[in-house]
Computed example of a mutant assay.
Amino acid sequence: MPTGRVGGRVRLQDVADLAGVSMKTVSNVVRGYEHISPAMRDKVQAAISELGYRPNLTARRLATGKTGMIALAIPELDQLYFAEIARLIGEEAGRQGYRILVEQTLNDVEAERAVIRDREEGLVDGVIFQPARIDTLEIARLRPETPLVLLGEAARPLTTDHVMIDNTAAARDGVEVLVRSGRRRIAFLGSVRGDLTESTRLRLLGYQEALLAAGIPLDPALVLQTGGFSVEDGVAAVVAAVAGGVEFDAILCRDDQFAMAAIRGLARAGREVPRDVAVLGWDDTAIARHSTPAVSSVSPDKESLARTALRLLVDRMDGYDGVGRHEIVPHVVVERATT
């Protein structure tokens, strides 16, 4: 066992002594430097495991200017889509030798400004951030010093890297699936009163474009208004539409939560899914995959989104200083029992 430890803490030198390599080699392995032979990496990792070595983040920061930490800022942790994105980004970060700090902004504009402006500076090497309230111009004006990659549709500064799916095209694809199955009165759930997010706007646009392309006239009554984003709000909107005499044989929902609301609301109204009304959700989360009936859903490639976001962020952290890169990840429409 190496000697000379300070206060029981295992030092980088201890690992180097046990592995029979230089401190520089141990440091390269810890930092995930790729130009290390597999045999050498295994040798150092075995010494790290045997000694229980844990990198000192403060020392690493002083020596390299990096902490090995990445922040992930998302609106709500209890939304399944964001929970799944957080898990996938955390897994991808771990594979690349980084750890993540996850925080939720709860759709609060001041919390979002803090993420951009100063909250993470000095604590992490980079930030992946899905804004909901702060806009494109404000992000550009704040000019964050910490490398930043944005997710979603709310803000897309030309100077900042950005990853998203094509929401308009995805909505068109969803409506086309419903039209091909013979549906002609297709509703959209929903437009939340007083809070039309950019993602909802783009999905509503694709919905309308697909209807027009199929020769189906637009009917404003089929865009169902809700009082909020909860399941109860969605259920109320569907029940009210049926009670008000609005006829429809399919619903494209802005997310899987609203799809569950649609199924519940249709059951209350005595309508059977999919015989009377087909239901198509969005995000392809666990609630869609494992519910009864299993819910058809527009499925963004969340794994690709996580990989792309990490790739762009690592480029920035490694010194890339070019113009913002805007990348679209794929999507598919997954059909299950509700269509």
Rank of each mutant, 00 (worst) to 15 (best):
R141N: 05
G194L: 01
T200C: 04
Q45P: 01
Y207D: 00
V238D: 08
A111S: 14
V333R: 09
D315E: 15
Q130C: 06
A19C: 09
H290C: 01
R289D: 03
G7L: 07
R11T: 12
A237V: 00
S297F: 02
E112M: 03
V115T: 09
A337G: 05
N56D: 15
T25Q: 02
Q208Y: 02
T197H: 06
V6H: 14
P220E: 13
V246M: 05
K66S: 12
L148G: 08
V231S: 09
P2I: 05
D14R: 05
N167G: 07
T308W: 08
L150G: 05
I216L: 15
A114C: 02
Y33W: 11
L266C: 08
D256C: 01
F258L: 02
P293K: 06
G90M: 12
Q225S: 08
L205F: 11
A306G: 03
R289W: 00
Y33N: 12
G4E: 08
T308H: 13
L252W: 11
L252P: 10
P38S: 15
C253A: 10
L305S: 02
E110S: 15
V44C: 07
H162F: 04
G324M: 06
M260D: 00
A214E: 14
L178V: 06
V163H: 03
R41A: 00
E84I: 02
E120L: 14
L205C: 10
L313W: 09
A262M: 05
A169Q: 11
P55V: 06
T200V: 09
V231E: 13
P131W: 09
S304P: 04
I74A: 00
T285E: 00
R61A: 15
G324N: 07
A71Y: 05
A261R: 02
L212N: 12
T58V: 13
D118Q: 12
L77S: 10
D249E: 02
G7P: 03
E138Q: 05
A240I: 03
R180L: 13
S191I: 06
P157E: 04
D219I: 04
V30R: 02
V10M: 03
S191R: 14
E232Y: 07
I74K: 00
I186K: 05
V329A: 06
S37M: 10
T58W: 14
I100G: 06
S181L: 11
L72W: 11
G190N: 08
L266G: 06
V177N: 05
P2Q: 04
L189V: 05
N56F: 03
V102D: 09
G68I: 13
L142K: 05
L150V: 06
D318Y: 13
L148I: 04
L189P: 01
R183W: 10
T168D: 14
T105L: 02
E50K: 15
Q208E: 14
G90E: 14
L202P: 01
N28M: 11
M40G: 06
L80K: 03
S297A: 13
A337I: 01
M164G: 07
A213T: 11
S181M: 09
D315V: 09
L18D: 10
S297I: 01
K302Q: 13
D14T: 03
E34A: 10
A39H: 11
R311Y: 01
S22H: 10
L51V: 07
T67N: 12
G97K: 14
R119L: 13
R325H: 10
T146L: 08
D125T: 05
G227W: 12
D173A: 15
V115R: 08
V179P: 07
L202F: 04
